[in-house]
Amino acid sequence: MSDGQFITVEGIRKTYRVGGSNVNALDGLDMTLAKGEMCTLMGPSGSGKTTLLNMLGGLDVPDEGSVRIGKVELTRLSEGQRAAFRRGNVGFIFQFFNLIPSLTALENVLVPVMFDSRDMSDRARELLERVGLSNREGHLPGELSGGERQRVAIARALINDPSLILADEPTGNIDSETAREIVSLFKELNSEGKTLILATHDRLVASRSGRSLRMRDGRLVRGGPQKRAPAGDSG
């Protein structure tokens, strides 16, 4: 596929066996993304957004097709190699934050580097300050609001300075005001050269991304430059 692209996905298929029948989560999907793009994936539940994010992040591998991030062909890597790739190159942000409940905000940010010999606590504090939580570093996730938890999760995703950030419904569990702040933060990261892919049902998020892709039944049904989302798009 096109050279010079940061992400190149070619003909990926993924079938899951659910209740005795096969479900095509991804059905011969192709896509490319340039470095530094911010892109949203929209579409109804079950359209394959999360499965595609999992493929792009090396969490899962397709039954067919290829996924290339930079110069790395993810489908050729072993599970251990994909784990190492994820740790060094990909920042994940989840709808339900997925923080570790027994760790403070600062410790949660430090989780991805806990096996490193480098002292990353200053960087973790900087990141918490950046997401506006410098006064909450000693709090447990249970003591934080949904928006604060998501911001801790964003700081955690940034600790290794990943080139690719994948977010699955990042504003799906927070109020609209906090969602706006989170989207602004994503825009800021994007302006610094990070590539972001956000799976979302939220048209606010889509309206502020550079490009919106629509998925249906495991395929991309619309891509290209961002257009105004049609009314009635509930995702």
Binding site: P101, L103, E107, V111
Partner: peptide, 19 residues
């Protein structure tokens, strides 16, 4: 237990303390 001292051991201690 943060910074360089935040390691798998401090992770485990935090969990034991939490529960």
């Amino acid at each position: 237990m943060i910074g360089r001292t935040f390691n798998p051991a401090s992770y485990a201690i935090s969990h034991l303390r939490h529960g």
